[in-house]
Amino acid sequence: MPDPQPEQMVACRQCGLLQQEIALQPQGGAVCCCCGASLYRNTPDSMSRTLALTIAAIICFSLANIYPILGIELQGNYNATNLFGAVRSLWQQGMHPVSALVFATTILTPALEMAILLYLLIPLILMQRPPRVVGIMRLMETIKPWGMIEVFMLGILVSLVKLKSDVTIIPGVALWSFAALTLMLSAVAASFNPRDIWLHLDRIKNNRED
């Protein structure tokens, strides 16, 4: 029996085992027969679905950064903050490394991730190859672990509990926007499938050559 072509094989990213690709039902997934890691998924409409979810996430992200998250009241004094206000206040207290870390993980990375998705998905759906697509895909893989909105959301809840016995708490619009953003970003992560993008790029290239 002749060996299958290299392009029809897939190597497990976690254990390195080389396996032959098989066709999958829509929404099906293949797992590695050595270590059980996910090899690839067949998600026929992942690009348009991811685009729709990204736009929803961008709306939540904007609201979450415009409005205050929480306000507190103590003996007639009132104070409220949003996320960027918290980052700026930490910077002014001289905690530059921590302030930069919080900014990078809760504002910069999620914003960059959503911008990259728009930049990639809109041309791809229109059968265009986005300029510098390989570098952008690599950037996407690099920054992905550093977006931590869901951890920040838990941080807000812990802060709520710490404050609730001492001060009066006034929840802001951004509190609900962050909750929605957490859901949207996990939905985006679940529906985004880098393999689809690479296969789609191959298809665009083949169309051009024909």
Partner: peptide, 14 residues
Amino acid sequence: MLDIYVVTFLAALV
């Protein structure tokens, strides 16, 4: 990162 976010947030708010 949880505790980092909690102290950041409290330091800005309180």
